[in-house]
């Protein structure tokens, strides 16, 4: 099997993830796009493991660790999203502008913290 097939698919998936993170407004959808990027990295790890014929199977073990870290990240990320939703009643990431340095007060945005 050509290694470039796996690498090309991984690059495409990573590009999709970048697009999703930047274009999505809903924080849960942003988390989904982050998962796409993590999976692109996993595919690279597994593909290089198979190509290199690693005796220690480092690539596959690292893919497992990435999956563990991704599970932890999704748990904490959703907890943050839930507490933001409780505090602000919205999870639209472009409406949470309390930390923005440009045009902090705009009609329709949440009020700036005094």
């Amino acid at each position: 099997m050509h290694l470039s097939l796996a690498l090309g698919l991984s690059a495409l998936l990573f590009g999709l993830g970048v697009y999703g993170v930047l274009a999505r407004r809903n924080a849960v959808a942003v988390l989904m796009a982050v998962e796409l990027m993590l999976n692109a990295a996993n595919l690279d790890l597994v593909a290089f493991d198979a190509w290199f014929k690693d005796q220690l199977h480092s690539g596959q073990v690292f893919a497992l660790f990435v999956i563990v870290v991704a599970a932890a990240e999704v748990g904490v990320g959703l907890a943050i999203v839930l507490s933001v939703f409780r505090l602000r009643d919205t999870i639209a990431v472009d409406r949470l502008r309390m930390l923005a340095d440009r045009d902090p007060v705009r009609v329709g945005d949440t009020e700036p913290v005094p």
């Binding site: 290694l3 470039s4 690498l7 090309g8 991984s10 690059a11 495409l12 990573f14 590009g15 999709l16 993830g17 970048v18 697009y19 999703g20 993170v21 930047l22 274009a23 999505r24 407004r25 809903n26 959808a29 690279d44 190509w51 639209a92 990431v93 472009d94």
Partner: peptide
């Protein structure tokens, strides 16, 4: 309103990332 207003920029960034990664890694291997 699931997508924010910066979709064209996001598409550009995604295409650039995929293109850069794809050309670099596929060409190297």
């Amino acid at each position: 309103d699931l997508d924010s207003g910066n979709r064209p920029v996001a598409a550009l960034a995604g295409l650039a990332t995929a293109g850069l990664l794809g050309v670099l890694v596929v060409d190297a291997f």
